[in-house]
């Protein structure tokens, strides 16, 4: 773990600007994926509207910077707070009225689309054309002439999100979110305040995602409602944890290390061959493969493989029985601890 961190810290010294960009996207999407994971992965409340939080965070800090010259470093937190407010509204409506599964997903999609349409029609926010940030190279304005600084900011965001997820995973809130994901009624019978826990999770998730919006705006230098609030961005956010393993600490990170380079490579490779758009087909095929073969994601699968490795030599129990029967039998009881 520490070794991996040291490698990532040293890496920019050896990377070209293109690879640096790839890594920045890996970290950034891992960050957004981890923020989504807090609600969708650990708590099982699937949001397909997380782009709305990115958009709100991005527009808030950019608007404040352009109009009041407020540093995006401060605007970042204000944008996060604005996104958290929207999260609270969505959470209150969705969870108070008991929307579960598909109905909650639809609610988040609807809110994302409402935000996109509203911003498209507000002239102060640039309407459908969006906002363009002029480059000044001023670090206080979240602008760096050297890409390596973006690399470290993105890495920092990812590490912060992992720290928060690790803390939650070990806390009562993490246990409660998992219980709600597994069986909400049973969790309530055991004293879990499902409404309050889910609301806290969506507010935190929205806050972190909104903070990410500032990075999004200042790395891309432009904001359009269709991209910053659009469903495609929401899908990008949710794919990382799902591919990597939702509800796990490493899932969103691993998912981002798999998907972001793949998207990048297939995009450049196929576009060069005059086949622009084919990368989406490749991407889609990969997703289908993941859902079919690793329904719980790559990380839980790999973890299972590594756990089984040392015992490879031992014969499997119940070899003479068909697999279904073997599984239905209870495992032989291990000796109890004294």
């Amino acid at each position: 773990m520490l070794l991996a961190l040291l490698v990532l810290l040293a890496l920019p010294q050896f990377l070209g600007s293109y690879l640096l960009t790839v890594f920045i996207f890996i970290f950034f999407y891992a960050y957004l994926g981890q923020a989504w994971n807090l609600l969708g992965g650990y708590g099982g409340q699937i949001s397909l509207g997380h782009a709305a939080f990115v958009g709100i965070g991005a527009y808030t800090s950019t608007y404040l910077a352009m109009t009041y010259q407020l540093s995006p470093w401060i605007g970042m937190l204000i944008g996060g707070a604005a996104a958290a407010c929207l999260g609270a509204v969505i959470g209150y409506l969705g969870f108070r009225f008991g929307l579960r599964g598909f109905y909650f997903i639809l609610l988040t999609v609807a809110f994302g689309e409402i935000c996109r349409l509203v911003v498209s029609h507000v002239d102060a926010l640039g309407g459908a054309l969006g906002l363009f940030i002029t480059f000044s190279g001023d670090p206080w304005q979240f602008q760096f002439s050297d890409n390596r600084y973006y690399y470290y900011v993105a890495l920092g965001l990812m590490l912060i999100s992992m720290g928060i997820a690790a803390l939650i995973e070990r806390s009562r809130m993490g246990a409660y979110l998992a219980a709600i994901r597994e069986d909400e009624d049973a969790s309530e019978a055991l004293g879990v305040n499902a409404f309050g826990t889910k609301l806290a999770a969506i507010v935190l998730s929205a806050f972190l995602t909104g903070v990410g919006g500032t990075f999004y705006a200042n790395y891309l230098f432009s904001l359009q409602p269709n991209t910053a609030f659009g469903i495609p961005l929401s899908v990008e956010i949710i794919l990382r944890p799902i591919v990597g393993g939702s509800g796990t600490l490493m899932g969103p990170v691993l998912g981002s290390f798999i998907l972001s380079p793949l998207a990048e490579v297939s995009r450049t490779y196929f576009a060069r061959g005059g086949l622009s758009g084919v990368h989406l087909i490749v991407y889609g095929s990969l997703l289908i493969a993941v859902v079919l073969f690793f329904p719980r994601g790559a990380y839980p699968y790999l973890r299972g493989v590594f756990r089984r490795l040392p015992r490879r030599g031992a014969p499997p129990p119940f070899r003479h029985l068909p697999p279904g029967v073997a599984r239905a039998k209870p495992a032989p009881e291990r000796p109890r601890d004294p």
């Binding site: 069986d183 309530e188 019978a189 004293g191």
Partner: peptide, 20 residues
Amino acid sequence: RPHQICHLGLTRTFQIVRPF
């Protein structure tokens, strides 16, 4: 709400067991 009642000291189990 059920979780409030549980905190007051009344807990139920389910006929069809509902493990996580």
